[in-house]
Computed example of a mutant assay.
Amino acid sequence: MPRVPRPAVVTAAVLAFGLLATAPATGDEPNVSAPRVVAHFDLARGESPENIALEPDGSADLTFSNARQVVNVTRQGRTRVLATLPAVANPHTPVVGAAVVLGIARAQNGTLFVNYATGTAATGIWRIPAGGGKPRQIAQLPPTGFPNGLALDERRGVLYAADSVLGTIWRVPRSGGTPRAWATGAALEPRNPRPAARVGANGLRFHRDAVWVSNTNAGTLMRIRVRQNGSACAIETRATRLYAIDDFGFVERHRDTALVALTGGSEVAMVRPDGTHRVVLTSKDGLSNPTSVAVRGRTVYVPGAAYFTQRDPNLLLARVHLRDRG
C-alpha cells in the first residue's frame, strides 16, 4: 500500500484502538522470534519495498513501488535490480498520483509477474523473464483502478489481482489476455471517503484452493474458495479488527494460520484459523510500516516500506518456531 497522507488513516486508527482482538499464545501454535534487519534501502531513490516473492535459494524478489523496480535481495542483504517498469508520462494513478509497481507473483519456472498502476493504458499485469530482463505487459486493467495484491494459481494457469479502488478481484490467464471480474462486492470495496485513503481489497494470496484477500479500510481478512469450474464461491470473512492490514503470508504446516502486515501501526500479527490474533512483531523489532509477509520453512520475511514513518525502509527476517499440528 503506497504512501497516503497520515490523516487518511486517523479514522481507522480511532476504530482500532481498544478493539483489536487479542488472545494469549496457545501451546500448539507457532511463535516468532529473533528478528533482524538484513537490508536497508534508500527512500530518496524510491526504494520502498511493497511486495515479496521468494526464490528457491531463499532470496527475496521485492517490488520497489516508487522506484518502479523489481529487485532481488539475498539473505545476506545483497541487492540487484531485475527489472524497471517503463516511465509513464503524466500518470493519473488513483490514491497516489504516481506510477507504482505493487504486487508480485513468481511461477515455478522463475517467471515473475507484477502489477503496475499508472492511471493510463500501462496499468495492468506485466511479465518479467526468469532471472530478470525487459518487462512486458500481458494484461491491461482499468486505468481508473489500483491493482495491488497479485497471486498465481499454477494448476489452473491463472493470475488473480486485487483492485483496491474498484473493489474487484480480476482473473487473467497466466499467458495474458483479457481480464475478467472474478469477485466483486461490498466486502472488497474501500470504506474511506477520502480519495487518498480509499484502499479496499489489497493483499492477496492463493492458499489451499482459495483466494485470500485483505481489505485495508475494513480491517478484514477474507477467503474465497474456487469452485471446480473456476468460479468464485461466496466471500467469507475470516478475521476482523486488523487495523490497516496490507498483505500477508501463511505459516507452513499450520493450515490457515497467517502472518499479516499491519502497515499503519508497524506491526505483524498472527491470525489464527478462528479469527483471533495477536501481535508478534513491532517497530521495536525493526519494522517500518510493513507491507507484506512471506514464510519459507522456519523463516519469515517482512518488507517495510516506511510510507508513514519515512525512516529506514528495510527487509526484516525472523524465525518461526513450528509445532506440527498434523
Score class of each variant (00 low, 15 high):
2 P>Y: 10
7 P>M: 04
9 V>E: 14
17 F>N: 13
18 G>S: 11
21 A>Q: 11
24 P>Y: 08
29 E>Y: 04
31 N>K: 15
35 P>D: 07
36 R>T: 14
36 R>Q: 15
45 R>T: 09
46 G>V: 00
61 D>M: 12
64 F>W: 07
64 F>H: 02
71 V>M: 04
72 N>Q: 13
73 V>H: 02
74 T>H: 10
76 Q>W: 11
83 A>P: 04
84 T>Y: 03
91 P>K: 08
91 P>A: 06
95 V>W: 01
95 V>R: 12
99 A>T: 10
104 I>Q: 03
106 R>M: 10
109 N>Q: 08
117 A>N: 09
120 T>Y: 06
122 A>G: 06
132 G>V: 03
136 R>H: 13
138 I>G: 05
141 L>K: 10
147 P>C: 01
151 A>Q: 07
151 A>M: 07
152 L>T: 00
153 D>S: 05
156 R>M: 08
158 V>Q: 03
160 Y>T: 01
174 R>S: 09
178 T>E: 15
178 T>I: 11
182 W>H: 00
185 G>K: 05
186 A>M: 11
186 A>K: 13
187 A>P: 06
192 N>K: 11
199 V>C: 04
199 V>S: 02
205 R>I: 05
205 R>Y: 01
211 V>G: 04
212 W>C: 00
216 T>P: 07
226 V>S: 02
234 A>C: 06
234 A>S: 14
249 G>Y: 01
253 R>C: 10
258 A>L: 02
259 L>F: 10
263 T>G: 11
265 G>K: 07
269 A>L: 10
280 V>E: 04
285 D>C: 06
291 T>N: 08
294 A>W: 01
297 G>K: 06
299 T>K: 05
305 A>D: 13
306 A>S: 13
315 L>V: 11
320 V>E: 00
